[in-house]
């Protein structure tokens, strides 16, 4: 419905622009078009978010679908996230060791591994991996539903697709991201310890004690729960790109790709802003 309105709007503006302005150089015209489509995208995103929020406060709350999405997006992402976290832990342990040995600060190795994993690497890698797996999944799923007019069918059967399809996925993303981050942190630290102890034996207790020495709640909880924002971004962008899919199966592929690219980009941008904000609120 909304997309239809917007399409009409777009068509109504274009002839006016062409008629009122003198012919522009083609380069300038393409920049103008790009800016125009960028603004359109944001406008459509705003309208989409508004529809979702309006649908979210109305009954029924679609709990069963939410649980299904939690499983789909959370539990099934777990192996991938665990593997990614473990890889980070191993790489950090091996890379950091050589740098620290060069400075004669080898005893700082546990702190360096644990701190960098729970503070930055764990959350960001979780965000990026989930945006890859889940963003693409949501984009492709909703895109194919859109092009096969299933969404229209859902709407016709009296179910709000913004609530049933979008809201449940967005909320599931918000909820599972912090949990997946914790899992990634845990796997990273464990594999970091295993990598360290293979090179130079150190007890797990000492590794954890040294790693968490001087760590406060703000060092652990704030970075972990900022991934909820990543979840919001991934879910929203995935659903939005999926539900505005046009042009058959080709359009489904475009939606999947664009939802991955945009959600990854926005996750990194949001991380920059959130790190700054966290430093302001938890100095």
């Amino acid at each position: 419905m909304v997309t239809h309105n917007i399409r009409i709007h777009r068509h109504s503006i274009r002839p006016a622009v062409v008629q009122t302005t003198p012919p522009l150089p083609s380069a300038l015209r393409s920049v103008g078009n790009l800016l125009n489509s960028f603004l359109e995208w944001f406008g459509e995103l705003g309208l989409f978010v508004w529809q979702v929020m309006r649908a979210a406060v109305r009954r029924p709350f679609e709990g069963r679908e939410l649980l299904r999405q939690l499983d789909e997006l959370g539990s099934k992402s777990m192996p991938l996230i665990a593997l990614a976290g473990a890889a980070i832990g191993a790489v950090l342990a091996l890379e950091t060791r050589s740098s620290l040995v060069r400075f004669g600060a080898k005893s700082m190795l546990p702190a360096a591994i644990v701190f960098s994993i729970i503070h930055e690497t764990g959350p960001v890698v979780t965000g990026l991996v989930v945006s890859g797996r889940v963003g693409a999944g949501i984009g492709a799923e909703l895109g194919s539903m859109k092009v096969t007019e299933q969404i229209d069918a859902i709407e016709a059967s009296g179910v709000n697709p913004y609530k049933f399809l979008a809201f449940t996925r967005i909320v599931a993303c918000i909820l599972v991201l912090p949990l997946l981050t914790v899992a990634a942190d845990f796997c990273g630290v464990m594999v970091g310890w295993i990598s360290s102890t293979l090179v130079e034996p150190i007890s797990f207790l000492k590794f954890i004690n040294q790693g968490l020495a001087g760590t406060s709640f703000s060092d652990f909880l704030a970075p972990t729960f900022r991934t909820a924002v990543f979840g919001l971004i991934i879910g929203t962008i995935g659903c939005f790109q999926g539900m505005r899919t046009q042009g058959g199966t080709e359009g489904v592929g475009r939606s999947a790709t664009s939802s991955v690219v945009l959600s990854s980009l926005l996750v990194i941008l949001a991380d920059v802003i959130l790190v700054k904000l966290i430093l302001v609120f938890f100095p």
Binding site: L67, L70, S75, K76, I208, T224
Partner: peptide
Amino acid sequence: SRAARLGAFIIATLAILAAGIFIIG
């Protein structure tokens, strides 16, 4: 089952979270 998988996921991650909170606390 899907529910068991989800339950295991949630319990495991929350347990890790709780352990982290407890260690730091």
